[in-house]
């Protein structure tokens, strides 16, 4: 446990000692702000729905970008050797890193609250919908972070880790829009796997336990696979 927090602290420090986190967070805020204001001024609507709908697509880029470094860099620099010869369980290493990237994302997401608050001043937003929408985004971010971390465990190149993470996240995201192309037998499966369907409920203001479970299982599965990948690469299986 203590080991997990040590890793978490280190990773958080690493994000803010380098420009990466600042660049990613700023970009995220700017793009979110742009969507938001264009809604506000062009459509004359003071609501968060448009922003909530665009946000997942941005997460498809931003979370793989935030997590690509986490393990790939350790393989590349050889620091993995020192990290895993500390008395830490692989589980603690993976959890610590996951929590770090999630924390950075949560900070960025938290900062976007600025926009709905403006809405609150200008109009009368649906608070319930907003809370559900943010919960959905945080869960999506957690799932994408876990996917990005897994990608980062599989390679010693950050670029490869990013591309891999991006395609998996994008695949899960796009699946919902491509349902019409899927043979009807597989339709329920695709509906279940795609991020879109689960997220749709949240943006309608509904928090369904099944949707939460979906994101939760993506996170757990990916983190377990990451632990495995760590041991597998090292133990040469």
């Amino acid at each position: 446990m203590g080991g997990m927090w040590a890793v978490f602290r280190r990773e958080l420090g690493a994000y803010f000692n380098q420009p990466v986190a600042y660049v990613v967070i700023t970009a995220y805020l700017l793009i979110c702000g742009w969507f938001f204001t264009s809604n506000l001024f062009l459509a004359g609507q003071a609501e968060v729905r448009g922003f909530l709908q665009m946000a997942p697509l941005m997460l498809v880029f931003f979370l793989p970008a935030l997590s690509m470094r986490l393990l790939a860099e350790e393989w590349k620099n050889g620091t993995m050797e020192l990290l895993v010869t500390l008395p830490l369980r692989d589980r603690d290493v993976v959890l610590g890193k996951f929590l770090a990237v999630f924390a950075v994302f949560a900070v960025a997401q938290g900062l976007t609250l600025l926009y709905p608050i403006t809405v609150g001043i200008l109009g009368h937003p649906d608070v319930g919908q907003m809370v559900a929408g943010y919960t959905g985004l945080l869960l999506t971010g957690a799932a994408f972070a876990a996917i990005g971390l897994l990608a980062s465990a599989l390679t010693s190149s950050q670029v490869v880790a990013f591309i891999l993470g991006f395609f998996v996240c994008f695949g899960l995201y796009i699946m919902g829009s491509a349902l019409s192309l899927v043979p009807s037998v597989l339709l329920p499966l695709f509906e279940f796997i795609s991020v879109d369907g689960h997220l749709a409920n949240f943006s309608k203001g509904v928090v369904d336990l099944r949707d939460v479970l979906y994101f939760g299982s993506v996170v757990v599965l990916c983190l377990a696979a990451t632990v495995n990948a760590l041991q597998g690469r090292r133990w040469g299986r």
Partner: peptide, 30 residues
């Protein structure tokens, strides 16, 4: 691992950290 201190061949260290921060990280992790 608790009983061993290890200096690997090419001295891999976290280049993005300060000296004290790094020692603090290792001490915490240990």
């Amino acid at each position: 691992r608790r009983q061993v201190g290890y200096l690997p061949e090419n001295v891999p260290l976290y280049d993005d950290m300060g000296v004290i921060d790094y020692l603090d990280f290792v001490a915490r992790a240990r």
